[in-house]
Design a protein around this nucleic acid. Structure first.
Lengths: 198, 198
DNA sequence: CGGGGTCTTGATCTCAATCAACCAATGTGG
DNA sequence: CCACATTGGTTGATTGAGATCAAGACCCCG
């Protein structure tokens, strides 16, 4: 259904057309380092910015989003990027493409929308926050489908994105699972959740 | 120091060059309504998106930022905008200007940076959150200056942006004021705080 | 005057943070 | 191959910070 990207993802191999596949948990690039812009083709990417005390969560990018656009202006990344789920990216910014203001406007608009989504992850009860995160991730993976299997990020990542602690996240997921509101599958190292997308 | 924008701001008058001045607390535009894009010349703007239960905080825009860019693509606003401080905006998107991908890239980059700033407002102790908000607002008003007088938004706005309650915000500001960490001036209807910008 | 909005302050309670221990899976080195 | 360390997840007990509920002060405006 996802087409060519649905195949198994190994770490950072470059395949045919110049796209890369990145494993869950691996870094895509680091802040400060030089490089170019990418379009996320599959999966969910976490962006972090250097804060006063260590890196701090700076946003999410879903399939279709552009990451690292700042390099076209500044030459290096201001954020670092990590794959929360298996991710496929492909280079963005072929001269012809980025000259189009239409495409840039599109990127700007989706980014603005993503801000609100991300902020909403830090509002309300733990249940609400985690459900919203999963729904958001589902939207990025759904290719028109209603029911999507989402790779559950590490608890630490969920905690940092939602502004909770790992313990609370663990308890909440356990409780939701117990209550039948969440269908978690897979071994402890690689879990998936079924999410309905609206 | 701010140049022509420093003059007193009345509600929504259109002045010479096509720019508008908006009073603290007034709406600039509403979601769904038609209109164009603006550049914020002075002040701080709060953006809200329609959520499941009422509008929810969707981002901040500071002087220099572009708001309403989505209208160039969609024709109408997806966010509503309100002035948290006295604000001056001017129309953005003269054909020549928006055709420049350089300008759009710039807008995209600052927006991405603003995401992280905004997210950070919901992290840490109330003290930290409120200080960060004021610092952020100060950055948008400083025109090279070190010390800036920032109009304190309404407590309800501060509360919604930081994810706290009005009571906690009130207590926190009182305590910071008491401790000499915050210099609050003005009558209860229009208070200012001195903020040092780094 | 009365009424609505904003801010303040106090008393109480609740829920998530914190601290701590443990388990399972994985990796490492001799 | 076994002893050991490490990492990610789980669970329990306790605590405290901020939410909640409530009341009053203040100000502006009709």
């Amino acid at each position: 259904m996802n087409g060519k990207y649905d195949m198994v993802v190994a770490n950072n191999i470059e395949a045919g057309d110049g796209w890369h596949a990145i494993e869950r948990g691996k870094d895509i690039y680091a802040a400060g380092q030089g490089g170019g812009a990418w379009r996320v083709m599959l999966g969910v990417v976490r962006l972090d910015r250097a804060g006063e005390d260590g890196p701090e969560f700076g946003g999410l990018a879903l399939a279709g989003d552009v990451i690292g656009a700042e390099t076209l202006l500044l030459g290096s990344y201001t954020f670092s990027a990590r794959a929360l789920t298996p991710v496929v990216i492909e280079p963005w910014g072929a001269a012809a493409e980025r000259a189009s203001s239409e495409v840039l406007l599109q990127a700007l608009t989706t980014t603005e929308g993503r801000v609100a989504d991300t902020l909403a992850l830090r509002n309300g009860s733990p249940d609400r926050r985690i459900n919203r995160l999963l729904a958001l991730m589902g939207r990025g993976l759904a290719h028109g489908r209603k029911l999507v299997r989402v790779a559950l990020p590490q608890l630490r990542d969920i905690a940092e994105m939602t502004g909770l602690t790992v313990e609370t996240v663990s308890r909440t997921i356990s409780r939701l699972k117990e209550a039948g509101e969440l269908d978690v599958r897979g071994n402890s190292r690689e879990r998936q959740v079924w999410v309905t997308v609206k």
